[in-house]
Each structure stands twice: as structure tokens, then as C-alpha cells.
Nucleic acid binder design. Structure first.
Lengths: 116, 116
DNA sequence: CAGCATCCCAGAAGATACTG
DNA sequence: CAGTATCTTCTGGGATGCTG
């Protein structure tokens, strides 16, 4: 699979607004989850991410990570050592998304149904 | 189709964080677009919404509107007159989401690729 | 005008097995 | 450990036609 830019469709599209651009970057199910996780925990290894995002499978996770990296939101750092170690972290661009992600979380906490 | 709460899966789920709650509400493709549109233009009629969200079909639009209403983010007001008129608008809950939506747009404008 | 019903399809995700 | 490959499943959306 070649490195696909998640926003390439956006590029070809007609509506070049900031809104659509942001949406194109976070469309996949677990992308925001990944960013959220990195925001809370700092650099994180592949398997650790997998563990935190229980629901995601390796495949979904890998796809999301690749696109996020291609879009410059996260960085991938590989340590060459016997048992492979790869850490993912937010880039500056990724970090710049955290205020809005925090707002998203706060909003959810305030408005989620109380008891059930 | 019965009125489905978009976040009902969330309710049954295990991860009851604000983050997941918000995500469950805005998952569908055009939901944020609708809120965005209502935020910019105030009360809007069904066909007007359809026109502004060019890409969406009636079906997608209707589904999104129903869930948004069920989740209390928008209101539906029906005027009984010969040629039917229905206006959608943001509820207080919906309005409270606008800051975060604005942030999303601003972020996109700042970070979207310059020329192409 | 504001929908609903039906059929179809694509893309994303789940499950599972394998590898440098 | 950090993936890749393959197959299947399923949700959401596109297209079209009908209706109170």
C-alpha cells in the first residue's frame, strides 16, 4: 500500500474550506483516538497504542497511523535494536490540534447523559 | 425506522468518557456540516440545507437530521401550511458546540496546504 | 415541500494467520 | 515487537422513484 494522503480527496474536491480539510484528516474511526492518546501519554509504542485503543484491530490501527503520519500529524521513530521498538508521537502540527481535542472532551463531559 | 439515538451504542459501550460521547454524536459524514451550516445561517429549511450541503443526498441528510434531533442538538419546527415548511435550528446544546466547531475550522484554515 | 422506500455499492473495519 | 496479507462483514452513503 502506497502512502496515501488522507486529504488527497479533499485536494481534488471543490470545497476548500478549513472545515473540510480538518474533517478529511480525522475521518477514520480511531484517528482522533490516537491523537488523544498521544496527547495524554506522550510518545507511545505501537503495542501500547493497541492496548489503549482496545476496540481497534492491528489493521485499523496501522492504517490510521500511516495516514496520520503521511498527513504530518504524528511522527514515527524506529529504534534499531534486537527486539524492534517503534514510538509514535505528535508532531507540532499534531500538537496544535490538542486545544480543539480538549474542547471536544470537555464538551462531552459536560453534556453526556448523567445516569443510565 | 425508529428514532435512533446516535449515542446509544456509546451508552452500551465500556468507555464512558466525554471524548467518546462527543465522537458518537458527530460521527456521521454530514452532521458537523449541518451544525456548521445552522451555526452560520440560523434556522434553515430542509431544501435549503440540501442545497448548501451539495454532496449530501436526501437520504443521508434525513438520517443525519433525525439523529441530531434525537440527540438534542437540533430542533425541528414544522409549520402547518399548504406547502409544507420545516425549519431546523440549533438547540442550546447544539449551540454550545459551536466554539469547538469554530476551532475546528480555524485549525483547518491555518494548516491546510497552501497551493495545489 | 419534505420527506420515505428500495436497491446497490464502496470503503472501512473485523478476524485470522503469517513474518522480518 | 511491529507489523503485513487475505478474506469477510457491515455500515453508511449514492441513486432513483414514490407520496402526503
Amino acid at each position: 500500500m502506497d502512502l496515501k494522503l488522507a486529504h488527497e480527496e479533499f485536494e481534488r474536491g471543490i470545497t476548500h474550506t478549513g472545515f473540510h480539510y480538518t474533517m478529511s484528516l480525522i475521518k477514520r474511526k480511531y484517528k482522533l483516538g490516537i491523537i488523544y492518546c498521544l496527547m495524554m501519554n506522550g510518545p507511545t509504542r505501537y503495542n501500547e497504542l493497541k492496548r489503549r485503543l482496545e476496540a481497534a484491530t492491528f489493521r485499523s490501527l496501522t492504517n490510521s497511523l500511516k495516514e496520520l503520519e503521511a498527513d504530518g500529524l504524528i511522527s514515527r521513530k524506529e529504534y534499531s535494536q534486537i527486539s524492534p521498538k517503534v514510538e509514535y508521537d505528535l508532531t507540532e502540527k499534531g500538537k496544535s490540534m490538542t486545544p480543539f481535542l480538549e474542547l471536544l472532551c470537555d464538551w462531552g463531559c459536560e453534556h453526556m447523559p448523567k445516569e443510565k
